[in-house]
Each structure stands twice: as structure tokens, then as C-alpha cells.
């Protein structure tokens, strides 16, 4: 049957070679096996991607006591907001313990604030310094420019743990352990990726614009901040969003240098969770609420800048 239809199709295609594929698809009424395969793949993909998010939300809105008896229901078991209240520190210690939380809970609000401080520091510092450096590599003339740029790029090949060990000693020697500066420092001034990313855009700005500015008597710094930066607002914002998310999600370095509660960021606090409850049953509802709260800023950024993030993917590839 399919052999016959496909032969008919072929005859039809040969007869009307110019017919657009869309018109042909509309004329054909039967469902092709590849359509079936396609839509089942879409369904599986949607379920696979969304289910873990949904499941943690469902757990966050349940009570710990009712989770064992109801481990598969799609709706929250015994709906409550107390998981979120515990995660945000709105519940009193007694309430938290009664609901299955640990008495010594993490100060989640403080961790949220610390993550914001560190990520904002890194985003502003890195984007500003890398934009200036990228402009120099793209436009200014100086000796060994291309060699220097090549050396910066080769740093992309070095595994982070390689530089992490000596960096730790350096930060320790400066007395920067358990400070915001210590957590932010390795990426505060530059990453090779950021310079590479912005240089690509600066290279495409027509030279005539800068020449016009220099005839008007503007120096390089004025030209850069008054003309180049506003013109490149879009890639700069994209880089800022990428940098913020990456810093927000960073785990290993903050774990090493920022264990003190006064500077501890979200990832480190959440990561400590398992070692804090080695034997007893963890406060799953509270934990899932906490992961949702910590993912929320990223989900918001995704809503606001999803298009930029998706479009930046060709560049992220070289990371």
C-alpha cells in the first residue's frame, strides 16, 4: 500500500516538479508514518522536559507527611504552601520542625541575596572590562595584537580545575576567603569567551562611523562609550544575561571559597543540603520549594530574554 502511494507520489512529483511541498502536503489526506513518529517524539520531548519541573512543584506544594502514602498522584498530596514558607524562612523553627524540616535551616533569603550580589558584581565587571578589551582587539593598533588575542583564546582549552587550584591559594593568601570579592574575583575582570563574543560584533561595525567621530574630535574613549557601546547594546545585553546565569549557577568555586554563611550563595547552600541530612528523611517538600525559588530568577530571565539566549547559541558553542 505504502509502496503504491509512494510510487504515485513520485510520478506526481515528476509531473509537477514545480509544485511546492506545502501544496502537496495539503492535498494528501492520509497520515504518513513519519508524521506519527514526529508527533510522538514531540510528545515525549515535552513530557521529558516538563515533568521534572512539574514534579518538584507538585512536591513543594505537598506536606512531607503525606508524600509516602501518595507517591504517584499528579496533584499535590495534601496541598499546602508551608514548603515555600520554610524555604523562605517565613515559618518559625517549631513549625518547620513539625512539618519535617530541619531545625537548623539554611538562611535562604540571605543566600538569595548573596547570589544576587556576586552575580551582579561579576556581570558588571566582566562585561565592562571585556567590552573595552574586545574593542581594543577589534579596532586599535598595537604591537603583537593578534598574538595576544591568540594567547587569550587558548585559555579556553584549559580545564577549569587546572587554574582553580593555584587560584585558591592566591585568593587565600590575599585573605579573600569568605568575602564577596573572593567568590567573584576569578571572573570579575574577564573570561576569554566574553572577549571573543564581543570582538565578533565590534569587528562588524563599519569603520566610517568611528572615522566620522574622530573628525569631530572625539577621543577613543568618547567614541567607545558614546557611539560603540550604544550601537552594540544588543550583544552586550546578551552577554550580560549569559554571564549572570553562569555565575548564578556556579558551584565549585563558591563552595571552595565561600562556605561562611554570611557570603554563601544559593548553589552552595542547596548543595550542602544532602550532607546535612545523612540518615533521616530529608524535608523533600521544603527542598523542592527551595529549588523552585532558586530557579525562579533564571526562569524570569528566560521569559524576558529567551530570544537573545536562543540566538546566542552559535557563539556559546565555542565555550
Amino acid at each position: 500500500m505504502t509502496a503504491i502511494t509512494s510510487r504515485l507520489d513520485r510520478a506526481e512529483t515528476a509531473a509537477t516538479a514545480v509544485t511546492s511541498s506545502r501544496r502537496r502536503r495539503r492535498r494528501r489526506r492520509h497520515v504518513k508514518p513519519s508524521d506519527l513518529f514526529f508527533w510522538s517524539l514531540v510528545a515525549v520531548l515535552l513530557i521529558l522536559t516538563l515533568f521534572p519541573f512539574y514534579w518538584s512543584l507538585r512536591t513543594a506544594l505537598s506536606t512531607n507527611a503525606s508524600l509516602p502514602a501518595n507517591s504517584t498522584g499528579l496533584l499535590p498530596a495534601n496541598f499546602t504552601l508551608s514548603g515555600f514558607e520554610r524555604a523562605l524562612g517565613l515559618a518559625s523553627t517549631e513549625e518547620a520542625i513539625a512539618a519535617g524540616g530541619s531545625g537548623a535551616q539554611i538562611d535562604f533569603i540571605k543566600a538569595l541575596r548573596n547570589s544576587f550580589i556576586v552575580s551582579t558584581m561579576v556581570t558588571i565587571g566582566q562585561v565592562l572590562c571585556c567590552a573595552m578589551a574586545a574593542y581594543a582587539f577589534a579596532r586599535l593598533r598595537f604591537p603583537f595584537r593578534n598574538q595576544l588575542f591568540f594567547i587569550v583564546l587558548t585559555a579556553l582549552m584549559i580545564p577549569p580545575i587546572f587554574t582553580l587550584l593555584p587560584n585558591f591559594l592566591w585568593v587565600q593568601d590575599r585573605g579573600w576567603l569568605n568575602t564577596y570579592l573572593g567568590i567573584a574575583s576569578p571572573k570579575l575582570l574577564m573570561t576569554p569567551f566574553a572577549i571573543f563574543f564581543l570582538r565578533q560584533f565590534f569587528l562588524n561595525i563599519p569603520r566610517e562611523i568611528e572615522e566620522a567621530a574622530s573628525i569631530d574630535g572625539a577621543g577613543r574613549f568618547r567614541t567607545f562609550f558614546k557611539i560603540i557601546v550604544p550601537m552594540s547594546a544588543s550583544p552586550i545585553v546578551t552577554l550580560a544575561v549569559l554571564t549572570f546565569i553562569e555565575q548564578w549557577n556556579d558551584y565549585l568555586w563558591p563552595k571552595l571559597v565561600g562556605q561562611d554563611e554570611s557570603v554563601r550563595v544559593l548553589t552552595t547552600s542547596l548543595g550542602n543540603f544532602r550532607s546535612q541530612t545523612p540518615q533521616g528523611t530529608p524535608d523533600w517538600a521544603g527542598l523542592m520549594a527551595a529549588t523552585w525559588v532558586s530557579a525562579l530568577p533564571i526562569l524570569l530571565l528566560l521569559l524576558l530574554a529567551g530570544k537573545r539566549l536562543v540566538n546566542s547559541i552559535q557563539f556559546s558553542g565555542i565555550k
Binding site: 548564578w248 556556579d250 548553589t267 532558586s294 533564571i298 536562543v310
Partner: peptide, 13 residues
């Protein structure tokens, strides 16, 4: 955007 979402979540989450 949807298929990119898990990648934007931190490893810890």
C-alpha cells in the same frame, strides 16, 4: 526556548 530551559538550570538544582 523550551528545550534550552534545563540547560539554564544550575547543576545543583
Amino acid at each position: 526556548t523550551l528545550v534550552m530551559t534545563p540547560y539554564l538550570m544550575s547543576n545543583v538544582v
